[in-house]
């Protein structure tokens, strides 16, 4: 970019009132699609299981009710035990979203915490924190999740903790480098000279400026966590008492639904994962783009 253009770019910005992030997000084509996807899926996940008449766990009465193709009663047919697939799909949406979001919250708290501490205190704190972060960045996540889930046993809480505890390193790195640069801005030495404590500076001078970055990153992490939950459940390490899209695919796989050509059983949960992950990815990338246009080349 030439200096002339840059000067004009600045002029452009000065004459416009900055719109809010959400307005920008809605104005971005990918962001808008992402928001629509997430709203639809959330509505389905929250209200779907209340409305749909079948109990996802209710087993069919006899062998004639298993692997039934879609019908007017069972929109997505039945599974290997004669259970209604559509009600499992709705319930699965709930668990997949719940695990993805809860695990992300854990990851964000750990990642942002470590990142802020490392960036703010620098020195040995930084070295130690980044050593641990790099270690977890290099250790292959899925094998470690499998090992942890296999050791600690299987229930929803453990799945959430295992995923969350391994999804934070990237957040930590991004937050750290942003904190490092924020710390050099003028308002930090000024606040310090006015006698503000470290805790106060972090709370009032650092964290507010990190929020947009953390939100964008968090949304992207949700996508990864939902995929992780699906994979873990597919391998058979999910909570056996909960239906998620991943566990549906696990049972579909081991019960031979693929070999039987029971597409109504293994297509919907996969599409569900695809659409939700895509929704979070679109919103996250778009958010990153509109809040920090310089960070990425944009699309």
């Amino acid at each position: 970019m030439t200096s002339d253009q840059a000067a004009q770019g600045i002029d452009d910005i000065e004459y416009e009132k900055p719109p809010s992030n959400w307005t920008l997000l809605w104005g971005d084509r990918m962001g808008r699609w992402g928001i629509i996807i997430l709203v639809v899926v959330t509505v389905l996940a929250v209200f779907g299981p209340m409305i749909w008449p079948f109990d996802p766990a209710a087993v069919g009465e006899d062998s004639s009710s298993i692997f039934q193709p879609p019908s007017s009663a069972h929109w997505l047919g039945t599974d290997e035990l004669g259970r209604d697939v559509f009600s499992q799909f709705l319930m699965g949406a709930r668990i997949s979203l719940f695990v993805g979001i809860m695990a992300t919250l854990i990851a964000t708290v750990i990642g942002a915490g470590i990142g802020v501490m490392a960036g703010f205190f620098r020195g040995p704190v930084d070295s130690a924190a980044m050593g641990v972060t790099d270690f977890f960045l290099v250790v292959p996540a899925l094998p470690l999740m499998i090992a942890l889930a296999a050791i600690f046993g299987q229930n929803l809480l453990i799945v959430i903790i295992v995923i969350g505890a391994l999804a934070w390193p990237r957040t930590a790195r991004i937050v750290r480098s942003q904190t490092l640069s924020l710390r050099e801005r003028q308002f930090v030495p000024r606040a310090r000279s006015l006698g503000a404590s470290n805790a106060r500076i972090i709370r009032t001078n650092i964290t507010p400026h990190l929020l947009a970055l953390i939100v964008a990153n968090t949304i992207l992490v949700v996508a990864g966590c939902i995929l992780a939950e699906a994979t873990l459940s597919f391998i058979g390490l999910g909570d056996p008492n909960r239906i998620s899209w991943g566990s549906m695919l696990h049972f579909g796989f081991v019960s031979g639904a693929v070999g039987r050509g029971a597409w109504w059983y293994f297509l919907p949960p996969g599409l569900g994962i695809l659409v939700v992950v895509l929704g979070f990815t679109l919103v996250g990338q778009s958010f990153e783009r509109v809040t920090n246009p310089k960070m990425r080349g944009g699309a």
Partner: peptide
Amino acid sequence: ESGCGKTTMAMAIPNLLP
């Protein structure tokens, strides 16, 4: 001054404009 168009004019000669 910067922004007066001098770089743009110069780059227009061999057509190296953005």
